[in-house]
Amino acid sequence: MRMFRNLKIIVFLILLIGVFVVLNLSGFTKNIKNFFYSVSSPIQKTLWQAGKNTSDFFSGIIEIKTLKKELDSLYTKNQELLGEIVVLKELKKENETLKEALDIELQKDFQLKIAQLIGKDISQDSILLDKGQKDGILKGMPVVTSQKMLLGRIGEVYDNFSEVILISNKQSSFDAKISEKEIFGVVRGKGNQELYLDLIPKEKEVSKEDLVITAALGGIFPQGLLVGKIKDVRKTDIEPFQTAEIEPEFNLKNLDYLFIITDF
C-alpha cells in the first residue's frame, strides 16, 4: 500500500516536472506572468506607496533625535554649498555656451522612456517596471534614475511589464572606470544591493570616495553613467589584481519613476 502511495507521488512529481519543462520551452510562462502582473499591478502600486508611507512615518519617529543633529550639520553644509552654487552657476553658463557651440545635448545622446517601479523581487536584486514590449522595451536596455545613476538593465520583457536586473545582481558584470583617473575595471554584483570593482591593475592608485562610472568598452551601457563610489579597497600580494567595494548611489526606497534608455 505504502509502496503504491510512494509510486503515485513519484509519478505526480515527474508529470509536474514535464508540465514545467513544456511551459518553459514553449515560452507560455511569459503570458502567465504578464496576466498575473496585469491583475496585480494596481494592488502592488497601492501597497508600494503604503509601504513607503509607513516606512517614512516610522523611520521619522525612530530617527527624531539624530534628525536634530543632522539638521544643524546640514545648515552649516548648506551655507558652504550656497557658496559653491554661485561658482557652479558661473561654470554652468560657461558650459551651456560650450554645449551650444558644439551642438551636444544629453537628450540627443539618449532616448529615454519613463517607467514606474511597481514591485521588487524577493532576491532583492531585480525590480519590476510598468513598461513592456508594447511600449518598445527590449531585453538589455539600460535603466537609470532621473539623476542619470545606473540602476541595471532590462532582463525579461513581458507585454506590459519588464524585469530589471540590478547592477548588484550576481549575474551582472560590466566594464567601468574610475572617474578622472582612467583606471578601468569590471563591476560585478554581489547580491543584496552590493557590488565591487574587480580586475583593477595593481599598480594603479584607487582611493575611497572615488566615483565609478560606466565605460564604453563592453557596449552594454553607455559610457559616463554613475555607478557608485569606492567604499573600500582590497589589495593583496598574492592576487594579480586589486578589488574595491562600491557603494551604489541608488536607493530603491526613494525611487518611484525610472528611465529606460531605448537608444544610445
Partner: peptide, 16 residues
C-alpha cells in the same frame, strides 16, 4: 503581494 511590494521597506537583519 505584501512580500513583493509592502514588506520591501521593512528589512529584518538586512533581509526581506
Amino acid at each position: 503581494l505584501i512580500q513583493t511590494s509592502f514588506s520591501v521597506y521593512f528589512k529584518v537583519l538586512d533581509l526581506i
